[in-house]
Simulated assay, not measured.
Amino acid sequence: MSRRSSRSPKPPVVTAGSPCPCGLDATYGDCCGAFHAGRATAPTPERLMRSRYSAFVVLDPHYLLRTWHSTTRPADLDLDPGIRWTGLDILATTGGSTFHNDGTVEFRAHYETHGETGSQHELSRFVREDGHWVYLDAVE
């Protein structure tokens, strides 16, 4: 008979040399890790969405808050270590080029929690604030 632990599972260990959780063919250190560490900024809303997803994977609330629009950003963010994010699908994008000031990303993020699997589907809006792409909100 196996025992189930009542403790929350630990987030996966993601190192600079690990595959990036966002799904792009790059290491975490060369992809989203560079954004998380502040060595680069996301050039498009899609890349920002991918980096924000990766921030959920590695439990980095500071990055999530830093990339959230000042008018919609919460005061703090408490990430649940019991949720293990398992994959990201980018379904559609609009705008977001160097010639745009806004854009959208429709995505589905997959997760496991308490032995159950699920997904979050959202159409997110992004805008430029102080010259950088930031998450504004979800379209209802």
Rank of each mutant, 00 (worst) to 15 (best):
V134S: 12
G87A: 12
D78Q: 10
L79F: 01
S54M: 01
T104F: 10
S70H: 08
L77W: 00
T94H: 03
I90T: 07
S54C: 00
H114L: 14
P12A: 14
S8Q: 13
R73S: 00
A138C: 09
T94M: 05
H114G: 11
D102Q: 12
D25Y: 05
A26H: 15
S2F: 15
S5N: 09
W85D: 02
A34N: 06
H62N: 03
G95S: 10
F126P: 09
H121T: 14
G115M: 09
T86M: 06
L59Q: 13
P74D: 01
S8V: 07
E122L: 06
A109H: 06
P61Q: 00
A55C: 01
S18E: 06
D76N: 06
E112T: 13
T117M: 10
V57E: 01
E122S: 13
F107Y: 14
S2C: 06
D60R: 03
D25R: 10
P43C: 04
R125Q: 13
R125S: 12
G17R: 14
I83E: 12
L48I: 06
G118Q: 06
P74T: 01
E140S: 14
H100F: 10
D30T: 11
L136N: 01
D30M: 07
L24A: 11
C31S: 09
H132M: 08
T117R: 15
A92Y: 02
F56L: 11
V139H: 08
A26I: 07
W85T: 01
H100M: 08
E129H: 10
V134Y: 08
P9D: 05
E129T: 08
G82T: 05
